[in-house]
Amino acid sequence: MTIAETTTENPDETPIETSVTLTINGSPVTVDQGQTVLDACTSAGIDTPTLCYAENLTPVNACRVCVVEQEGSRTLVPSCSRKAEDGMEIQTDSPRVRHSRKMVLEFLGSGVDMSQAYQVHRWMDEYGADPGRYGPEAARIREDVKVQDDLYIRDYDKCILCYKCVEACGDDAQMTFAISASGRGFDARISTEFDVTLPDSACVYCGNCVGVCPTGAIQFKTEFDMRQADNWKPEEQTVTQTVCSYCGVGCNLELHVQDEKIVKVTSPADHSVTHGHLCIKGRFGWTYVQPTIERR
């Protein structure tokens, strides 16, 4: 590195000059090279259902609810991971797309408790999913809620195996690797080694798994308790963005407040400091603001 060669610009972040233009439902859409079909759909204002996708995680394209039809492709393609290419012709609302989305939602609804899943009910209505048509004998996950500590619970009856928690625990964020998918097929579960309890596992209680779970299968204990008491009222909650009070990283927090009490803490996935990921102190260390013992 010589004086003449050195710039103070980030060489890895030189502006992307190349863009690609694809056709979505007959209309041209231009996005930056490297963006996905989902990005293109979003920029074109098209609502695309997603479950296993999160902007702060590597796409695993496992849930298949975001599939679209690509001219020339034998099968549908997952929009979340498929890179947009020049000249692609994409259909997002064709009968094939609608059918597969409906079936994915229906399949999930037939085996998993989706009652707390974000947005899923809207999509089920939109695509006409009827999980009931597999009959009352249809196999379900059927797992008891795991309550092993005071910070979060795991309710695998609600798990759609989207892998987000595994990614957030592992190489997409925390690098702790306390959990993994285990087993195979319908019997696959997210699990610690030999299903040891979380306190006995490598878990460091960053709660990043809770932060990315789309169905409430991993849930803050505070939320779980309030739901049990029928006192969880998201419509009454305010969300305030602030900065964590602990170390010097500067993680952004979203304080969810109900009845003037903090009820849970999340972090914005689009924030450049930690992309929605926190540690145990940021995610759970807020209790001193409203301790059970009166602050004097």
Binding site: S100, A139, R184, G185
Partner: peptide, 25 residues
């Protein structure tokens, strides 16, 4: 197929189970 599906994607993971159930039913 029910036993051998890896379980990664939803259509196959659940579809092979529902198919097996349907054949039995």
């Amino acid at each position: 197929f029910r036993n051998e599906s890896c379980g990664q994607c939803v259509p196959c993971r659940v579809g092979v189970v529902r198919q097996h159930e349907l054949i039995i039913r």
